[in-house]
Design a protein around this nucleic acid. Structure first.
Length: 117
DNA sequence: CCGCTGACTCGCG
DNA sequence: ACGCGAGCCAGCG
């Protein structure tokens, strides 16, 4: 899988996501305007991500972990990595990241301080 | 060129 | 809340 030159921009983007924060597949596809991407393609890019790319910080819409359906082992790995970096999950059984606290925004989230915490 | 395949997402029952 | 089907589009045989 060395033909995915366009995936480099995706990897570069993911490398900017700080530990403890996450972004979604759709968000990446949306925020990278230099190349046309779909969430599915971002998924493929993550599957073949180089070792220096924190792939675990890319999650599904609403904080889900889409890999869970295809591979329970990978789900466990991703969840462990995220919890180790301090990412909060909504509950033990529900595999959902607390997006309100952990989603990382490349652009300004908005001008208003939302609910804060 | 055609058809199938996804670390996805959204809308509907 | 949850499964299902449809849309998505670059790669690959």
């Amino acid at each position: 899988m060395d033909d995915f030159e366009s995936f480099e921009v995706v990897y570069a983007f993911v490398r900017t996501v700080p530990a403890g924060k996450v972004v979604t597949y759709g968000q990446i596809a949306e925020e990278i305007a230099t190349v046309r991407l779909t969430a599915r393609m971002v998924g493929t890019a993550m599957r073949y991500a180089p070792v220096d790319v924190p792939w675990q910080r890319v999650v599904g819409a609403e904080g889900s972990l889409p890999i869970a359906k295809r591979s329970p082992e990978m789900y466990r790995v991703q969840r462990d990595l995220l919890e180790k970096e301090g990412v909060a999950f909504l509950s033990q059984d529900s595999p959902r990241v607390d997006m309100r606290r952990c989603q990382w925004h490349y652009l300004e989230p908005s001008q208003g301080n939302l609910f804060d915490e």
